[in-house]
Simulated scan of single mutants.
Amino acid sequence: MPEFSAPSRRGILFGTAAVSAGALITGCTSNEPEKKDSAAPANAPVADGAPGKAVTIGFAGPQADHGWLNAINDNAKQRAKKYSDVTLEITEGSNDTAAQIGQVQTLINKKVDVLVILPADGKALTQVGLQAMKAGIPVINLDRIFASPQAYRCWIGGDNYGMGLNAGNYIGEQLKDKPDAKVVELAGVDNLELTKQRTQGFDDALKNYPNIRKVARQAADFTVESGQAKMAQLLQAQSDFDALWNHDDDQGVGALRAIAQAGRKDFIMVGGAGAKSAMDAIKADNSVLKATVLYPPTMAASAIDIARAVAQGKGVGGMAEMEIPASITLYSAVVTKDNVAQYLPTGFI
């Protein structure tokens, strides 16, 4: 795609200070004095909780018809409330790409200072991201990535491959001493790239454990009902296996129902995303669910931090570079009964 000319608000599109991915959640609310780094520019402005230039952030996401998507909206709203200098313009949200494009265009016409967009379809919304950037409105692309890096100033999202990789490694460690161990996989929506990445990460992790074979895979639809139906099919087809990797905790609620109805307790289950219901079950330790791999909806709060910093021409601290990174990939931590208390506050409903 041809490169477009730099917009007049170039200084906004390219922040004038540094950001640390690990500091995104805490760096913007800290009132502690910034520690000087001799390697960093002495005059580099860093965003903190103190009021600064008034900023209007437009937030456009898909319809919140899933626990994780609802948590995305909640994280964005709650984060924006922490800043007296931030006004959040949030759209109704839609899974219809044409409707979401229209919502983003409305925000562009309102001349918001910066946009945070979680597209229902990254490829389909790329052009409207480019439109915003050309209009001098920096775009923070949340999770589902646009087809062109010219359509966003910064991308922040989860690590789908890492989810599968860490789930596979956790299961591998639990079964590494069991000869001829068998695992099954309850995937998400098969035509989504994220589902393919989660499966690929899982398969790659299992390559490190030659004693383990994946004997079945079934795709569900990220809903409780589909999780129950597809898990029931897996249980009927596979009378003997040692572990289950379930891509999504919402469909995992249904999967657990099917497992309980079948009276099965002979395997361990690892979930995905980090729902509160999953963490509660892990903490209670009274079911086959022993772990979940995070896909943190707190990324929406971090996106608000980044948007505020970019619009104010600041960074959020931590690195020697002058610029906010072009992309930030969050880590998929494995939550077990040993660390669930630490992560439970982030669990979504």
Rank of each mutant, 00 (worst) to 15 (best):
K314D: 05
A333G: 12
Q174P: 04
D221L: 13
K230H: 06
V139L: 03
S332Q: 03
Y161Q: 01
A311H: 00
A64I: 04
V335W: 05
I25Y: 14
V86K: 12
Q218L: 06
G227N: 09
G168C: 11
A124L: 07
K35I: 14
D203I: 08
S287K: 06
D240M: 05
Q261N: 13
D242H: 15
A135I: 01
I156G: 07
G93W: 02
G162W: 05
D338T: 13
N211D: 01
N246D: 15
A205W: 12
K123M: 01
S287G: 09
L256H: 02
I12W: 00
F202C: 13
A54N: 14
A281P: 09
D249W: 11
G157R: 02
S20F: 00
V184N: 11
T106K: 10
S302G: 09
F59C: 03
A147E: 12
L206H: 12
V334T: 15
E3H: 09
N191W: 07
V55P: 12
V112Q: 03
C154Y: 01
K276Y: 08
F222Q: 06
D248F: 12
N286V: 11
S302D: 15
A278I: 05
A326H: 05
A151T: 11
I156P: 03
T329D: 00
G317H: 03
